[in-house]
Structures are given as structure tokens and as C-alpha cells.
Amino acid sequence: MLKVEVYRYNPETDKTPYMKTYEVDTEGKDLMVLDVLEMLKAKDASLSFRRSCREGVCGSDGVNISGKNGLACITPLSSCVKNNKLVLRPLPGLPVIRDLVIDMSQFYAQYRKIEPFLQNDTPAPAIERLQSPEDRAKLDGLYECILCACCSTSCPSFWWNPDKFVGPAGLLQAYRFLADSRDSANEKRLNGLSDPFSVFRCHGIQNCVSVCPKGLNPTRAIGHIRNMLLHSAT
């Protein structure tokens, strides 16, 4: 039997959050963490968590799994169970709504700040705005982000300043548009990031890189933004 400790908190009935221990029979299979959560939900219908696609595409089941943020649906038990014990907590740093469900308003507010849409003030051509294969390749490793918030909620700089530091997820997307040859708003985008907090709270801790379920690298993207800010300032 696998021991599973789950963070429980129902603001309507609980004064404080607490850890509840369950036992689950995995029949020796290397299940995904989400499978275990579903088994717990069948046992205890009061347990709340987010999930949707169950294959690492939608990004809704980001949780803190035995101390490391990840997507429950693509994290196998073999990678996170130690001494037959699994510990599940909500993503850290953001307010908890209930159990493993967090309030992601601050995360989305930072995403909104970087204006995550293509901006081009030249007249639209009759066909699509074309891009060379080389320019298109610059977006690889950036566009794949699914906004699961595993990175930003593992970042100490984001824990301290969730209202002022854009965070790794937002900055990866900021660079995704800065690097896009079809976008012509670079100057405006860089001006919006040049204050001491938006970008420069990143201290290269690399928690974001170590947890990203898609293997992306916000630290490098932030380095590129810094270089662009440096060049635009001279």
C-alpha cells in the first residue's frame, strides 16, 4: 500500500490547513500521480484538485509533488515516491482556494502585463505574415509553454514579489514575442520591462528550469531579455 499525504484545506470548515494521510493500493504499477489523485477522489469525494487533459497538454494539474512542482498527469510514481510515501501539496506561493486548488490571479495578472499577443503596426499583407525557417526556429523552446505555473510558483523571487516581478512563465512569453520577427512592438515591450522589478528580480536560481514539465528554459530567455534591454539603452 502506498502512503499518500495530501494537503487539505476547506476554508468553510477548517481553521487551518492540515495534512491527511491516505493509503492507496497501486497493485505495484508505476502509475502517474494523477491516477493516484483520482483513486483518492473515488475514496474521498471532498478532495479537490484541478485536472483536464491528463496528458501534459492543458497545464491544469500542476501540484507540488514530494517537494517538487510538476504536472500530476505526467509524473510517474517511480520518480517521486520515497520510502513508499508520496506528499502532495498545492503549488507554493499563491493563495489556496481549497485543498490542491490555488488562486492563480496574480500569475495571470503578470502574464497580462507582458501583452502576450502579436503586435504589428504595418499594414496587413494579403497573405499571412511570412517568416523564414531561421526566424521561426527562434521561437522553439518558447512557444511550447502551457502556463501551468510550475515555474513561477517555484521561484523565490516570485514568492517575494508576485505583484511586481513578472516571473519565469511571463518572461518566457515576453521573450517569445520579443524574438518574433513578425512583431514590431519591441521598443514598447522593452520599455515595459526596464524597471528594477519586472525582469531584474531574477537571480539565476534556476528553480524554474529544474521543474518545467516541458523542459523549457526561462533563465536563458530572461538572459536574452536583459541583453536586449542593455542594447536598447545604449
Partner: peptide, 8 residues
Amino acid sequence: MSLPITAY
């Protein structure tokens, strides 16, 4: 939290 060596 289990942190990577870069965090320490």
C-alpha cells in the same frame, strides 16, 4: 521543498 543545487 526539495530544492536543486543551484538554489542552495
